[in-house]
């Protein structure tokens, strides 16, 4: 069977743009629905989100969306208007840019960059600019404090995130995400190639580092000091309402979706399924990647709804005294194995 698709350059670009523009809000909504509304409600016995619409509270998310759309667009009198308005767009833009390199099948990728995973982490760091802009332009001390905490935290945890990825890059011999998937698909476990070799087996330290660091990058509990509702109301988002707040919401959950997809690609083999090649891999790839990323996201949100918040100094100590040395040791060990075998 062949999918003889020959589409022009312009229409390919249009299709890719539409796919990226729909996948992120959709992914954010799926994560928000499955984990925030359903899983958290079950774990914490919250009855509210189970009620609207009758069956399992399916209407809750639609209701939330409608609520955001009809809210008044409030801007503080002292706010720096232009910076205040642009900040949510910067955050969402960095989320959208990450998706350009995530492969969903052998041919289903917007652009398989040679620097793939490095590019993804570089553009995801741009969201800090948006967060600082939002906190400063709000002319509110809680917002400013939240933004400062966010910046300190995101910078500190970018390092373990990068170091966690370096182990995978050394083992795969490439930074391209497509190349990393292929090297896992063609890998062998002690000479047996039936399942390929997901890097989960060799880079479990990297996976743990990546998950902890991405939890901090997403400012989720136990690292949610920038938005700590009991201390800072909602941190840098405190002055945002309605549609602009929705942008931050999509940015937060869309980035969670993107990080889960990157983790699934780096450590669980991405779209690859044992024994499936060619067009079937293109058809089955997206659902397989989705299933894998939902497993990763389940762990991320499980932690989020379970643990209490750390203190600011504990947060920095975890990054600099524990995660970064561990990441460096992992790189050293991976390098040794790469040279030895």
């Amino acid at each position: 069977m062949t999918l003889a698709l020959s589409i022009g350059w312009g229409s390919t670009l249009a299709i890719k743009t539409i796919v990226v523009l729909t996948v992120i809000p959709l992914g954010a909504l799926i994560l928000g629905y499955v984990f925030l509304l359903k899983m958290m409600s079950h774990m914490q016995s919250r009855l509210g989100p189970m009620d609207p619409g009758g069956f399992h509270g399916w209407y809750q998310l639609v209701g939330d969306g409608l609520k955001f759309l009809q809210k008044e667009d409030v801007m503080p009198a002292q706010a720096d208007r232009r910076v205040f308005a642009v900040a949510p767009a910067v955050v969402v833009m960095s989320t959208f840019l990450v998706f350009l390199v995530i492969p969903m099948g052998p041919d289903l990728v917007v652009k398989d960059l040679d620097v793939g995973v490095f590019y993804a982490l570089a553009v995801s760091s741009l969201s800090v600019v948006g967060v600082l802009m939002a906190g400063w332009a709000s002319a509110n001390k809680f917002a400013l404090l939240g933004a400062l905490r966010a910046a300190a935290q995101l910078i500190a945890y970018e390092l373990p995130l990068l170091l966690a990825v370096v182990g995978v890059v050394i083992q795969a011999g490439t930074m391209s995400l497509q190349g990393i998937v292929l090297s896992q698909q063609h890998g062998k476990i002690f000479g047996w190639g039936g399942l390929g070799e997901p890097f989960l087996l060799t880079q479990f330290v990297g996976l743990a580092l990546f998950l902890v660091a991405s939890q901090a990058e997403l400012t989720q509990t136990p690292f949610d000091m920038p938005v700590a509702e009991s201390e800072l109301v909602a941190g840098y988002m405190v002055e945002y309402t309605g549609f602009r707040f929705l942008f931050f919401f999509i940015g937060e959950f869309g980035t969670a979706f993107a990080f889960a997809a990157i983790a699934a690609t780096l450590f669980l083999g991405g779209w690859a399924i044992p024994g499936v090649h060619g067009d079937w891999a293109n058809i089955l790839g997206p659902p397989v990647l989705f299933a894998k990323l939902m497993i990763i996201a389940f762990f991320m949100f499980w932690v989020r709804f379970t643990y209490p918040r750390l203190r600011e100094d504990q947060l920095q100590a975890v990054a600099w005294k524990f995660l970064i040395p561990l990441g460096l040791a992992n790189i050293l060990l991976t390098g040794l194995f790469k040279v030895a075998f």
Partner: peptide, 26 residues
């Protein structure tokens, strides 16, 4: 020079300017 370009983004925008902003706001 693709690699250099993304290093520029990560280091200069993602770290140096953030530190500027952080220092100014602090």
């Amino acid at each position: 020079a693709e690699f250099t370009a993304w290093v520029q983004v990560l280091i200069y925008i993602g770290a140096v300017v953030i530190l500027f902003l952080f220092g100014i706001m602090l």
